[in-house]
């Protein structure tokens, strides 16, 4: 069984760690765009009003002003819904922040289908793809509340731009304070040599559940939490390919350009093995209950298990 220590949304991990950072480092500055409470930066706002700025509903200015604050010597964190944090101000992220290599941290909340009833406009499913192609930026997709806290703290102390993708809904907490976290170094959460399941974000828990299902059929799956999509941990991917011979990727993101693509890029250059990808299959989401959507769009443990059985036939 996968041990679970309750449920909490990753957005609260983002917000709580900013408070910790705010207390220990006077350079931490947070900027919001009218969504402070929903992306959980409201407590930071109330505790450190001198290091908070609400720019209103104006995301290009949000990223531009964050760039200016980085030039002024602060460590700015911006946070809003992922669609608005990565999509609309993409060129500011590219040309102002990445090209200048500015120390701006971008929090993209409300990622994935799990946004639920707001529907496709607000379900960010493309950020990994559109941010991953930018030089210099790091992308972290933490798997639960605890790991989100670690990701935020770690990103504050690494120089240069970082994008952190997190979510709105309560999701299982299954890592703990002692679980390792280092930017760029993926973690093996379960050993196995028949197949490797590589997942990020909410899909890591589904991957662990899938491995349980597969265990009953005597298929031992290695589960790897690829929390850092960029720079990706090539070593762990290549080892898994050599030792397991088949790989399934799982992400709450479009199938093109996300984790699956990133893993495939590593494999084709180093050690090609059969790969199946569990992801949103080139379509938009819709309104609905979050878990119902995950079922409808094929992002559950059973879907991963099916993909494993498919990939094993190609081994």
């Amino acid at each position: 069984m996968v041990e679970v220590f309750g449920k909490k949304a990753t957005r609260f991990g983002f917000g709580e760690s900013l408070i910790e950072l705010g207390k220990e480092n006077s350079k931490i500055f947070v900027l919001g765009a009218d969504t402070a409470s929903s992306v959980a930066i409201n407590i930071f706002r109330d505790m450190f009003p001198d290091r908070f700025l609400n720019v209103g509903i104006a995301e290009t200015n949000l990223l531009g002003m964050a760039a200016g604050l980085a030039i002024a010597g602060f460590i700015p964190f911006v946070a809003t819904y992922g669609v608005f944090a990565a999509g609309r101000p993409w060129e500011q992220i590219r040309t102002t922040i990445c090209y200048s290599n500015l120390n701006v941290k971008i929090g993209g909340s409300h990622s994935g289908l799990m946004v639920g009833s707001d529907g496709a406009t607000h379900q960010a499913l493309e950020e990994i793809a559109i941010i991953r192609c930018l030089p210099r930026i790091k992308i972290i997709v933490p798997c639960d509340f605890i790991e989100t806290k670690k990701a935020v703290i770690a990103s504050a102390y690494v120089d240069g731009p970082v994008y952190i993708r997190y979510g709105r809904e309560n999701t299982p907490i299954f890592t703990n304070d002692n679980s390792p976290f280092e930017i760029g170094r993926a973690n093996i959460l379960r050993e196995g040599n028949d197949v490797a399941i590589m997942a990020c974000g909410t899909m890591v828990y589904e991957a662990l559940m899938a491995a349980e299902l597969l265990g009953k059929k005597e298929i031992e799956a290695r589960v790897i939490n690829i929390h850092t999509i960029k720079p990706i941990d090539e070593k762990i991917i290549i080892s898994a390919a050599k030792e397991c011979g088949a790989i399934v990727t799982a992400e709450e993101h479009q199938i093109y350009g996300g984790l699956g693509s990133a893993v495939a890029e590593v494999l084709v250059k180093n050690y090609p093995v059969p790969v199946e990808m569990v992801a949103i299959n080139d379509t938009f989401g819709e309104s609905g209950n979050p878990m119902d959507l995950m079922v409808k769009y094929g992002l559950r443990d059973v879907n991963i298990a099916k993909a494993v059985q498919k990939v094993l036939k190609r081994k």
Partner: peptide, 8 residues
């Protein structure tokens, strides 16, 4: 925007 950020 960049200038406004530096100013803040």
């Amino acid at each position: 925007s960049i200038g406004a950020g530096i100013s803040v």
